[in-house]
C-alpha cells in the first residue's frame, strides 16, 4: 500500500496528540509540538532535564513539514515515505499503540447491550532467502466464538470511544481472552500449514547445497579448521534456515453492538 495521503496521516497523528496545526497550504504545514511530542520526536533530553531542574516549563518546538516534493525549497523538512522523521513517527506508533479497550457509540435506542470481541492485527513474516509479510486483522466474539477476518475494515465504519457510553452495559465474556487468542493462533497455524511453501523448500535446498560446498572446502584439513567450519555452518543456517514469525501488531478488547456482527 502506498502512503497515499501523507498529509492526512500526519495531521491525525499530531492532532490526536493535541498538537496544533499552525499553518497549512498545499503541501506544506507547521505543527506546534506539545511537551510530550517534543520529548518523543526531537531528541533533546538534556534540554528537558535542565528545564525540569530549573523548575521552568520549557518551550516545545515547532516543526514544518513539506509533503509536496516540488516545494522542497521551503524552509522545513521534506517528509516522504523513507524520510527519517516519518520512520520515527511510524516507529513511535508501532511502539506505543499496541493495546486498547474500546466501546461502540451511537447505537440504537432498543439494544443497549455491548458484546466483547478480541481483536488482533497479526503480521506473519516468511523469512528464507528473501522475506515477505502478510497482515491479518482477526476478531473473535468472546461470547459465541464467532470469528471474522478484515476486522479493521468493519471497525473503520463505526464510532468508537474509550469509555462505555451512557445507558449501555457490557456482556461478560464467556471465552477468556487468552483462550480466545489461542483459537485465533490455531486458525493462522492452519492457514500457514495449508500453504505451498516453495520458498522454504528452495531456501532449504540452497542451504543444503552450500553446506556441501563448505564441507568440500574443508575436507582435507577439517580438524585444524573445526572452529572456522562451525562458524561458517552457523552463518549459513542463520542466512537460509526458513522461519515463519507471527507477531501481533496491536489488539485489544472491543465492545460492539449485536447488530454490527
Amino acid at each position: 500500500m502506498a502512503l497515499s495521503n501523507l498529509n492526512q496521516f500526519l495531521k491525525t497523528f499530531f492532532t490526536t496528540h493535541e498538537c496544533r496545526i499552525l499553518s497549512r497550504e498545499e503541501g506544506v504545514f507547521t505543527v506546534q509540538l506539545t511537551e510530550e511530542m517534543d520529548k518523543a520526536l526531537m531528541n533533546r533530553p538534556f534540554y528537558w532535564h535542565y528545564m525540569k531542574k530549573m523548575g521552568k516549563t520549557g518551550d516545545p518546538m515547532q516543526l514544518t513539514f513539506i509533503t509536496n516534493s516540488e516545494k522542497r525549497e521551503y524552509k522545513g523538512e521534506w517528509i516522504h515515505f523513507g524520510s527519517p522523521r516519518l520512520q520515527q513517527i511510524i516507529h513511535h506508533l508501532k511502539e506505543k499503540e499496541r493495546y486498547t479497550k474500546l466501546y461502540q457509540k451511537d447505537i440504537s435506542a432498543q439494544n443497549k447491550a455491548l458484546y466483547p470481541w478480541l481483536v488482533t492485527n497479526i503480521k506473519i513474516s516468511y523469512i528464507g532467502k528473501q522475506m515477505k509479510e502478510e497482515l491479518f486483522s482477526i476478531g473473535l466474539n468472546l461470547v459465541n466464538g464467532m470469528m471474522r477476518t478484515k476486522m479493521m475494515d468493519l471497525l473503520k465504519n463505526i464510532s468508537l470511544q474509550m469509555t462505555i457510553p451512557d445507558y449501555c452495559y457490557s456482556i461478560s465474556p464467556i471465552i477468556m481472552p487468552k483462550s480466545g487468542y489461542k483459537r485465533i493462533e490455531n486458525v493462522l497455524k492452519q492457514y500457514i500449514q495449508d500453504q505451498n511453501h516453495q520458498w522454504a523448500e528452495e531456501s532449504l535446498r540452497t542451504l543444503d547445497s552450500e553446506l556441501k560446498l563448505l564441507h568440500h572446502f574443508y575436507k582435507d584439513n577439517q580438524d585444524e579448521n573445526e572452529e572456522q567450519l562451525l562458524k561458517e555452518e552457523m552463518d549459513l543456517k542463520n542466512r537460509y534456515q526458513p522461519t515463519i514469525k507471527l507477531q501481533v501488531v496491536n489488539g485489544g478488547i472491543f465492545y460492539l453492538s449485536k447488530s454490527l456482527t
Binding site: 490526536t16 506508533l93 508501532k94 499503540e97 479497550k101 474500546l102 492485527n121 496491536n250 485489544g252
Partner: peptide, 16 residues
C-alpha cells in the same frame, strides 16, 4: 490504552 485514532493509525502504519 490507545485511543481508536492512534490504534488505527498504528495499523495503517504497519500496512504501508
Amino acid at each position: 490504552l490507545s485511543s481508536w485514532e492512534l490504534f488505527k493509525l498504528a495499523y495503517d502504519a504497519e500496512m504501508f
